[in-house]
């Protein structure tokens, strides 16, 4: 392979529909569950395992999860999507609900899709930015 052949591993391009322009951040976001304890921390851990369907990055590092709370065995997850027309919406929300409900001590999970504040590149964690750079994005 000559040196100027594109390397599919590092030259992969992201979903063309996702908007990677700079945006305004939000003081409370990204939320990563850093300070969470007990069951809530366990739910954050479970959500960390879920990757974006198109890029090798955890949905938590991508900044899609806005909040997690557990009350009386019910986990409530506030989540957004990068794009309103995301064709993987049901797949992702099902995955998140299942992952949260599977945490020991959680009986049920409720997912609330939220659209404000809107997701921007500022919502990606530093670790997430490293993952995206490794994937071939310049951010």
């Amino acid at each position: 392979m000559s040196s100027n052949t594109p390397d599919p591993e590092t030259d992969a391009t992201p979903c063309a529909y996702t908007d990677y322009r700079e945006g305004e951040g939000d003081d409370d976001l990204p939320a990563t569950g850093e300070d969470a304890t007990g069951l809530e921390a366990d739910v954050w851990d479970a959500l960390y395992e879920i990757e974006d369907p198109e890029m090798p990055i955890s949905i938590v590092d991508l900044g899609l999860i806005y909040g997690v709370s557990v009350e009386d065995g019910v986990a409530t997850v506030d989540m957004t999507l990068t794009y309103s027309g995301c064709p993987a919406r049901d797949m992702l929300t099902d995955q998140v609900e299942e992952a949260a409900a599977a945490v020991e001590g959680v009986e049920d999970a409720e997912l609330r899709l939220v659209w404000s504040p809107e997701w921007t590149i500022e919502m990606v964690t530093e670790r997430g930015k490293d993952d995206l750079r490794e994937f071939g994005l310049s951010i």
């Binding site: 908007d19 659209w115 404000s116 997701w119």
Partner: peptide, 11 residues
Amino acid sequence: IADRVGKIQSE
């Protein structure tokens, strides 16, 4: 309604 406007405007 208000919460959705910004997302839609940006797109």
